[in-house]
Design a protein around this nucleic acid. Sequence first.
DNA 1: TAAATATGGTCTATATTTGAGACATGGTCG
DNA 2: CGACCATGTCTCAAATATAGACCATATTTA
Lengths: 142, 142
Amino acid sequence: MNTALSAIERFSRYQSDDAQSEKPVHCPVRDVLDRIGDKWSMLMIMTLARRPQRFSELRRAIRDISKRMLTQTLRDLERDGLITRHVFPTKPPSVEYRLAPLGQSLLEPMASLIDWADRRYSDIRAARACFDGTPGNVPRQT
Amino acid sequence: MNTALSAIERFSRYQSDDAQSEKPVHCPVRDVLDRIGDKWSMLMIMTLARRPQRFSELRRAIRDISKRMLTQTLRDLERDGLITRHVFPTKPPSVEYRLAPLGQSLLEPMASLIDWADRRYSDIRAARACFDGTPGNVPRQT
DNA sequence: TAAATATGGTCTATATTTGAGACATGGTCG
DNA sequence: CGACCATGTCTCAAATATAGACCATATTTA
């Protein structure tokens, strides 16, 4: 738990920098979180963790992503060095995406998050049901 | 590393369910990730990890969030049982937000992500610079 | 030979989300 | 009376995501 807090403290250093300067020092944590914390990136990384996959395999694996977002997410992840892109000169050219070492190293921390999600999901659902069901959450106005 | 993979495997169970059924079983991991993986939630939780804070304190801490999104993010986190909301009947009423136990329990996994971000940030920046600087990333067309 | 299929994308028009900032509420201060 | 504080809500505009048409090329099917 204090391990956790020390990481948070490290983060908060940037936060206060942020609060001081006009042009904020770009907080690494935030920068990274903005990248991998979007709708598809983690999903993509988890999917590629199973095995390298091609464009259309990824599309099948993550059924509700649009081609546009798939392309864009892959580009962004490639740009940040988390995945690599390999083109094979097959008849209709095929492209395979793989987790780069940097992406591999993200699996460990991500796994602990997945673990948390899995273990706590019932609590969240309970809280949600409670919040939604309780009269008194509707009249929010003071 | 195989700890990581086992978590990923657990996740992929839902993925394949997903691929089979028309109306997908809602994957807990994904459900949770969609919630805390938005633009502000993690930031909010990290900020509240330092200490309970009031609406305007949060606004100052996260300078570029709009009131609208601040309210909405707080509501969503409250709904999911990650934070709690306490109204004090001071002259202009004040509202304090606190991390709930469920939110506390998220700190540990989140910390490992922060840790990763902090340690790997230079690698990411390097990859980014390389990608942006390398001619040959522009002509992406086959 | 022509049509259909598959690949990895891009482009456009629409839908959704986010942000900026006006407005509300009720009490205190000058 | 009028201004100000805190905590929101509301509306409208801007940014972003989505669906799905379209493209070029090559192979298989009819």
